[in-house]
Structure formats: structure tokens, C-alpha cells
Nucleic acid binder design. Structure first.
Lengths: 212, 212
DNA sequence: TTTCTAACGCTACGGGTCGTAGCGTAACTT
DNA sequence: AAGTTACGCTACGACCCGTAGCGTTAGAAA
């Protein structure tokens, strides 16, 4: 997703799609080996077998390049549709954990988030590239559970949306925190514990809401 | 907490404690204005009214300096002892959220975490300076709740420890994720929703464990 | 007081990165 | 064949890192 001028077929020499792919791969490799702070555009260019100027013709800066590199990784995530809500949640948790287990993901994701705290456009880019992609999973999982009758169809739309957001922050936050801050591995047992906590809490949440 | 040689009173000119304070404050200010990636040691030194070499006499590198700067902020956190577990949880959540609401905290914390993914000593330093300080709150809150009879005293010590770790990752993770990734504000209503979810889930967790 | 010692401010340095400019060449369209 | 754009290459100014050397200064010890 490098930046191009707008629309249709252009004249002149076309951009090399091979270079696009090579750059993204080189960025991932460099992130793994060098980490964020020692990541250099020159190094990426060399690895990709490309001139440094070619990088800057596509991405305005290092941050944008890394966001795009990471965003691509999040495409893999999907709701497993295992037949039960608990199974689906566990599945997503384990997928997400596996994603964060890759060195390039953990390093890049946090670095970009850190940078985004001072950079509004970057934050928007992250939201549309990464966050929305994950949030979709929550809505999807809920829809499946409602079809199965495991979850009631909430009437108060606003409350339902708030709950979905909460679930998203809890799941993604817990997985990220466990992996990066606590630096403990996520295994099936942990995923089960989190799922139990989550679904138990969800029941309490819905109960309280319908009571009031 | 700059690095000193070990023990007791030394001879020669003592380190200026005023410089220590000025450096930490300058670091916080610089983080707010420049963000992590544009943070420079030279700038910090100038702001603190100190020579750059003085920084390096105390901290081996930028990372360590920032970790210490951030760690100091986490000293404020404490369990409110409001009389109920729910009140305590909400209180801690709101405190933590307020902490992350400061620009210097959010920027620095994430940047340091990102860096730690490739830096083992840094990770240890974070764990002892920041993480342990927070984890204490969980244990403390549980002890209070057990005194009040709100929570049972678990017999399986290992399981109890795992639950405490889970709670910690969920609470801290959710707050961080909400603040930094979702970039939504944390208000009292959100804190209540999270608390409801958490305590409901905790009940389910304990129930399941005692059943098996 | 005098002596000793380590911290301090200052300056300068080598090594590295960023992001840009300018040029000749290569690839594709019309 | 002409036109247009991407590409590789080289060079550049600006900035930053972390260190070294030196004269000066603030306390402790004698």
C-alpha cells in the first residue's frame, strides 16, 4: 500500500511491484534482526536490493513504511467458527498470540503505537489499517454467537457497541500486555482462563444492564 | 536512580542531586514536546542546564534514562481501600488511566516497551521498576478483599498466582489498549463496566476452579 | 587551611542516520 | 520513435550518538 498518485493507468515506466514486495519483506527481516531503534532505511534498501531513494518514492518516512509492513500481518486473523463462543474466543486469542509471538510483529507494533502518541495522522493510519481489522473479529464473533442463541440480541444499540469495544480492549490488551510487558508465553491454558473470565464477566455485564 | 558505584560515603566532589532532579524533569518535558523518536540527549542536557557528559555519567544510554523517568511516575499508584473490592478496582483503574493520560507517560511507556522486545536487560529493568510495582496492587487488593470476606482464600497457591497474573494483564492491558490503541478516553462509566466484567469473570473463574 | 579526589562544564571528534537533489539510464505507453 | 516516469547511483547538509580530553569546582579528609 505505498503512496501512489490517484487514479488510472499512467504513462511512463510503471512502479516495480517486485520492489514493493522486496521492500516489505526486507523491512520485516530488518526489524527482526535490528529492532526498531536501530532500523535504518539504508539497511532496508540494501536488503531489498533497491536504492534508498526508491523507498522514499513510496513511503514518506520510516513510520509509514513500518505501519504498512505490520498491517499486512493482521490480515491473517479470522474467527474460527468452532461452534461455540468459548471456542471462538480461545481461537482468536491464540491466533493473536501467535501473531505477537513473531519478533517483527511485537517490535514493530509497539514502536508504531508509541510513535502514534505524538503523531495524529499516524494514529489514524494505525486505526484504519490495524485496529479496525481486529475489531471486526469481535463483531463477527458476537454475530455468530447470537445466531447460535448463546448471546441475546441486545436492544440498546449504544450499550451493545460499548460492550463490544470493551471486549476488544480487554482481549487485545490482555494478550498484548501478557506478551510484551509480562513477557510470559500464552498457551492454551491461559487462553482458556482468559475466556472463562471474559464470558463470565460478559454474563454479569448483560445481566446488570437488563436489570437497570 | 542513576547508576552509582556501590557503597558508602565517597571522597571527592559529590554528585549534584539538583542535577538529578533537573535531568529527570527535563526528560519528561522533552518527551512531551518532542516525542520519543525525536528525543535527543543534547536537548535534554540543555533543558536541564547541564552538560551532556553529565547525563552519560549517570545513565549509560537514552533507554535507561527514560525507564527511570517513567518508573518514578508509577510510585503514585496505590489501592484506595474504598471498602469494597469493586470500589478498589475502579479506583486503581482510574488512577492508572490518569497516569496514562499524561503525554510523557504514554509516549515513554510504549517506546520503552517496544525497545525492550529486543533488549533483555532493559526488559528486566522494566520488570523490576514498573511491572512489579503495579503487580503489588493486585495482590494488595486481593488481600483486602479476602479480609472483608469478599473473596475466598484460595488453597491452590499456584492457581491463585495464575489468577492474579491474569487479572493484572487484563486490567493493565485493557487500560493501556483503550488509551493508546483505541485512543478513547477512560471515564468513570468505562471503569465501572470493566470492573463489572472483571468481577463477574472472577466469580466464574473461582467457581470453575473449585468445581474441578 | 591545605590537600585530595571525583564531579562538573566545555569542546571536539568519529561514526552513523536521515531525507533530498541531481544525473544518466531503463522500462513502458502512445 | 517520442514522451514520460521509475530506477540506481552518488553526493550532500543536517543532525544525533556516545566518548575523550582538559581545566575547573565542590566537598571530604588531613
Amino acid at each position: 500500500m505505498p503512496s501512489r498518485t490517484p487514479g488510472a493507468a499512467r504513462t511512463g515506466r510503471p512502479r516495480s511491484t517486485a520492489a514493493d514486495a522486496a521492500i516489505l519483506e526486507a523491512t520485516r527481516d530488518a526489524l527482526v534482526e535490528q529492532g526498531w531503534s536501530k532500523l535504518s532505511m539504508g539497511d532496508i534498501a540494501t536488503r531489498a536490493g533497491v536504492a534508498k531513494t526508491t523507498l522514499y518514492r513510496r513511503w514518506p518516512s520510516k513510520n509509514e513504511l513500518v505501519v504498512d509492513t505490520v498491517a499486512a500481518l493482521f490480515d491473517e486473523l479470522e474467527v474460527p467458527d468452532s461452534g461455540t463462543l468459548a471456542g471462538d474466543v480461545e481461537g482468536v486469542v491464540l491466533q493473536f498470540a501467535a501473531l505477537l509471538d513473531r519478533p517483527e510483529t511485537r517490535t514493530a507494533l509497539m514502536a508504531v503505537v508509541a510513535e502514534s502518541t505524538r503523531d495524529e495522522p499516524l494514529r489514524d493510519r494505525i486505526r484504519s489499517s490495524i485496529v479496525d481489522r481486529q475489531k471486526r473479529l469481535v463483531l463477527q464473533g458476537r454475530a455468530l454467537a447470537q445466531q447460535r442463541g448463546e448471546l441475546p440480541v441486545e436492544e440498546d444499540e449504544q450499550a451493545a457497541s460499548a460492550t463490544a469495544d470493551l471486549i476488544f480492549d480487554v482481549v487485545a490488551g490482555a494478550v498484548v500486555h501478557r506478551t510484551l510487558v509480562s513477557a510470559e508465553p500464552i498457551d492454551a491454558a491461559w487462553a482458556r482462563r482468559l475466556t472463562t473470565l471474559l464470558l463470565g464477566g460478559l454474563a454479569a455485564t448483560i445481566q446488570e444492564r437488563s436489570a437497570s
